[in-house]
Nucleic acid binder design. Sequence first.
DNA 1: CCGTCTTGGTTGAATGACCAACCATCTTGG
DNA 2: CCAAGATGGTTGGTCATTCAACCAAGACGG
Lengths: 233, 233
Amino acid sequence: MTDKLLAPGLSSSAQQRARHIAEAAAAVMSRNGYGGTTMKDIAAEAQVAPGLIHYYFDSKEDLLLAVVRMLCEEMRQEAREAFAASSGAAPIARAWATLQTAQTNIADKPDRQRLMFECIALAMSEPRVREQLIELYVDLLDTTSGMVDELNTQVPTPLPVPARDFAAVIVAAIDGITLQQLIDPSRDAAALYRALGFILLSGVAASYAVAGLPTPSLEDFAALLGTQPEPQP
Amino acid sequence: MTDKLLAPGLSSSAQQRARHIAEAAAAVMSRNGYGGTTMKDIAAEAQVAPGLIHYYFDSKEDLLLAVVRMLCEEMRQEAREAFAASSGAAPIARAWATLQTAQTNIADKPDRQRLMFECIALAMSEPRVREQLIELYVDLLDTTSGMVDELNTQVPTPLPVPARDFAAVIVAAIDGITLQQLIDPSRDAAALYRALGFILLSGVAASYAVAGLPTPSLEDFAALLGTQPEPQP
DNA sequence: CCGTCTTGGTTGAATGACCAACCATCTTGG
DNA sequence: CCAAGATGGTTGGTCATTCAACCAAGACGG
């Protein structure tokens, strides 16, 4: 039994208790990182005896996984909502709106992102963690490539690359930007997202061009992304 | 004194000795990860007493930093060489050739990449590590944006985003793809790099279109990237 | 030339801090 | 009254780091 949280056969109050502990863990771990968090810290945050944590979770690692799963689900949900909310708009606008959720995520809750990456680092040496993480990534790519698929139908020439690969690259770029932000928060994340937006959207422009349709100008994009185009000197 | 390796006033034989230890550390840490490596392991690999390591390096952390700096420098060098070697070719080909070095890097030496990310995770909680990492990223972005600048002059319409932001996004995407590869090596890295290539290069296509020049067809790109375009069903 | 001193390296056992996991023992709700 | 739930001190193991002792090889005085 690896994860009592998901195990059936626990009363709903027990599930609530487990969740309470997981939330406390999320708070402390976000604050101090996984390595910098002791079971005692978590117990203190949850106002509970240290031993009790092991009653609900087999190990510290399990607790981390529960936390990370919660955080992932939350982020994915936000992205899905933004995508759905923009369902009437032009494909470019939808893509941009959805991308924004990633941007605000790192801006508003850097600690959570940090925890995610600590978990990834742990996964490199802990096979159990890795498996869980693979699952989470599969879900994330499913969601993203679903969106790409949908946008693909609204564009004159469909993308010349498999939607899933395209989605993976988008996710990769977001992860990478997040990483850079975590390492040096003083850098301007908005500028990077703007650049990412341009890069992705110029693909759309090419799509128009290839179809022999009038190509949207870069100024159009610029207006959309809320910035001026900045030609190189 | 934080880093005896760089400290002046050590005889050159001492520098050699330090390097020898750092190389042993690189080997073991790549194999077992930073967390999974003990000073004893490193000592054994270097055929040296555990205590000696602290004669040359103040802490395990310092040793990691020395190792990471070596690895970074190596990768940057490879990329620079590939870029320089292709200096006669078309901008698209140069970009692609340089991108390839990143691809082979993760394919051939995943362990090193893993160590890099473990170091990044550590940086989140260790200010000293973070500072060093910021420096390394600055260097990396300098190199990359230098390349982007150079390519920018060879293209009909210069990029509408600052070269440095563009470079940062490229680096981010590479990092992200690397991360995904580390988590699940069974995924097809080549496909992701192909997708990244298309995304970046369709920006070039747009650049032609905006300039009112005939747009290179996606088939042209496909040939260049050594694959067939795969239209979505 | 030879013994001794000095210095720069080198050794590996001992230290000490840390903490996840355990468990013997209470408490309480049903 | 008795589990299920909760407590928190104890335990055992892991390591980074320290340190006192050791050694080889060059400098030096006699």
